[in-house]
Nucleic acid binder design. Structure first.
Length: 580
DNA sequence: GCCGTTTTCGGCCCGACTGTTTTCAGTCG
């Protein structure tokens, strides 16, 4: 059982306890533990096997340690089963809907017998919800739209979560000596922000043995189908995995075929036909039309690796992130593919938090983590006071923070610390920090954390007003979306991007895999309109700094090159470019 | 349920917004 699954079980326990009305601090203990587990770098499974003391981990005490051991050894948790005797587990899903929490879910169950999403929908449709005390017409309508949105996105897993399942699976497969090559194709390889399933390709000497090895992977919930060359399984997380064993001479063709996208493939095949070739997952062939039905008919031209497949079609190899039929084939033909940005090109991280607000590590720990990643500079950008729950800073606190920044800067001359802040954009577009303080910051990020559902016109006006403040440097997570959780705000993004470009404010690509905001398409538009772009992790702990790669991946999908991204610049140039 | 230069009990992030209220409960971040 992987950390992310253990965390999901603990999260479910917390949700059920909350619906039951348990001690809120006990609930929080489960949530805290779930978060620690989800973010722990080493698999807890291994720690359990090595009989390490799990209570050494933060927020893990005697009980949590026992739960984790039980999950690792039995694959399920008695406590969760007991709780779901009292309260149906399906109620937890209801609380995933925005605006519907534990109390309301409980009431709907008690009063209307609502247990599932379908129950909820029919109760809302027949108007039963609006009649309950504490509920009303608006709540009922909101529930219906929330169900609709929830259904639309169900079935796609965030890329960051998929990675947590894919990496251990790949390690498992590579540990088998019969496995010669293995790679995940599909949208996972194209680094789309969410994936529906994993398409795993394998070259193996003993196909049958490897298939058996795969279908006995411990994290499998169900084997859907299993044949000589292809098996489909569902992992306990619900993620579907297709594994295909391919011949070595077809590996490149298969990798290209299963990486997609579909639109990219269609165009490649048309191109093959124009050149008197036939492209399939088996390879590139010339002739053989008379033997219809035989995939190997004709002369084998290419297929061993992707390079030779593309080459045989008169194209340069195209990075997977670009394979969306957005002009990459034409660019490859003209040898004008962009020189895509890489993690190595990033010289500093421009959004992170510390224990001064809601971060988990101290300023100095964050600094040391940036040094360890080879950065030349970083910005410390704790929250402003409007975000009370994060312990946001007011002017006086900010001044105190500067004193500490000066102290640690003196101790660590090897890296530049920028005094920054993530300042809330208030409801009327004003900023949550006095002008005199804003003027003294090295970098000012602004972002929306409240009133996400203003009418679109007002929202646009609000953000554009904030962009007009002369101290502002970066618009952080511009749409406010959280993937699979919160839709982007409704506003005129084009007008906002134009305004940012005109006033010399950079827009952020927030690299956190829960956000990825702006997304790839929006980034392309931002660049088109002349916006400067920064990629930042929004780190709340030292390990979050490694999320930079998720941002870079989306930037690559947007065709960005190092020169498009401000935090690839050396420090003095960055400072100059931030001037407005 | 976790944690401890507040240490074995008694704390534990808290203010704003929404929709339903007529003084507030629930939700969110």
């Amino acid at each position: 059982m992987e950390n992310i699954e253990i965390a999901a079980v603990l999260q479910n326990v917390a949700d059920l306890l909350e619906i039951k009305g348990a001690n809120p601090f006990r609930i929080r203990a489960y949530r805290n533990a779930a978060q620690v587990v989800a973010e722990w770098a080493a698999p807890l499974r291994k720690l359990v096997e090595e009989e390490c003391d799990l209570t050494e981990l933060p927020s893990i005490g005697k009980d949590m340690a026992r739960h984790i051991e039980e999950l690792v050894s039995r694959g399920e948790l008695m406590l969760l089963q007991e709780l779901s005797q009292d309260v149906p587990l399906s109620l937890v899903e209801l609380t995933r809907l925005p605006g519907l929490g534990a109390k309301k879910a409980r009431k709907l169950w008690d009063e209307l017998g609502v247990e599932t999403l379908d129950d909820l929908e029919s109760a809302a449709e027949r108007g039963a919800i609006a009649t309950l005390p504490g509920f009303g017409e608006k709540t009922q309508d909101k529930i219906l739209t929330a169900i609709d949105r929830y259904r639309k996105r169900r079935g796609r897993m965030k890329l960051g979560d998929a990675d947590q399942h894919a990496v251990p699976l790949l390690d498992y497969l590579r540990a088998n000596p019969e496995v010669k090559r293995v790679e995940v194709a599909g949208s996972y390889r194209r680094r789309r922000e969410t994936v529906r399933d994993l398409d795993v390709l394998v070259i193996a000497t003993q196909a049958e043995a490897v298939m058996g090895y795969f279908t006995s992977y411990p994290d499998i919930k169900q084997v859907e189908s299993s044949g000589e060359t292809r098996s489909t399984v569902v992992l306990r997380s619900g993620l579907q995995v297709d594994l295909r064993i391919v011949a070595p001479q077809s590996y490149g063709a298969a990798l290209s075929y299963f990486t997609g996208s579909k639109e990219h493939n269609v165009k490649l095949r048309m191109r093959a036909i124009q050149r008197g070739l036939r492209l399939s997952e088996y390879g590139v062939f010339r002739g053989g039309e008379e033997e219809a039905g035989d995939p190997w008919a004709g002369e084998f031209v290419a297929g061993r690796d992707e390079n030779e497949v593309y080459e045989s079609l008169g194209l340069a190899w195209i990075p997977p992130e670009l394979r969306e039929n957005r002009g990459e084939i034409e660019a490859a033909e003209r040898s004008e593919l962009p020189d895509l940005i890489t993690v190595g090109a990033i010289r500093g991280d421009l959004q992170m938090h510390s224990t001064w607000s809601d971060g988990k590590n101290t300023l100095e720990e964050m600094l040391e983590a940036c040094v360890a990643r080879g950065y030349e500079y970083f910005a410390i950008t704790d929250h402003s006071k409007a975000l009370a729950m994060t312990g946001g800073l007011d002017g006086a606190k900010l001044r105190e923070q500067w004193t500490e920044i000066d102290e640690i800067a003196e101790r660590h001359p090897g890296i530049e610390i920028m005094r920054g802040m993530e300042v809330d954009i208030l409801g009327d577009g004003a900023l949550d920090l006095e002008d005199a303080m804003l003027a003294q910051l090295d970098i000012v990020l602004i972002s929306v954390h409240s009133r996400f559902d203003l009418p679109p016109g007002d929202q646009t006006e609000r953000i554009i007003k904030a962009l007009g403040h002369p101290a502002v440097n970066v618009l952080a997570h511009p749409t406010g979306r959280q993937i699979n959780r919160r839709d982007p705000m409704q506003f005129d993004l084009d007008a906002v991007l134009q305004s940012a470009a005109d006033s010399g404010v950079a827009v952020e690509l927030n690299a956190h895999p829960d956000r990825l905001d702006l997304n790839d398409v929006q980034l392309m538009r931002a660049r088109e309109l002349g916006c400067d772009i920064v990629i930042s992790t929004d780190a709340h702990r030292t390990t979050d700094l490694d999320l930079m790669r998720y941002g870079v991946e989306q930037a690559r999908r947007a065709w960005l090159q190092p020169a498009d991204v401000l935090n690839t610049l050396p420090f003095t140039e960055l400072v100059r470019r931030l001037q407005r």
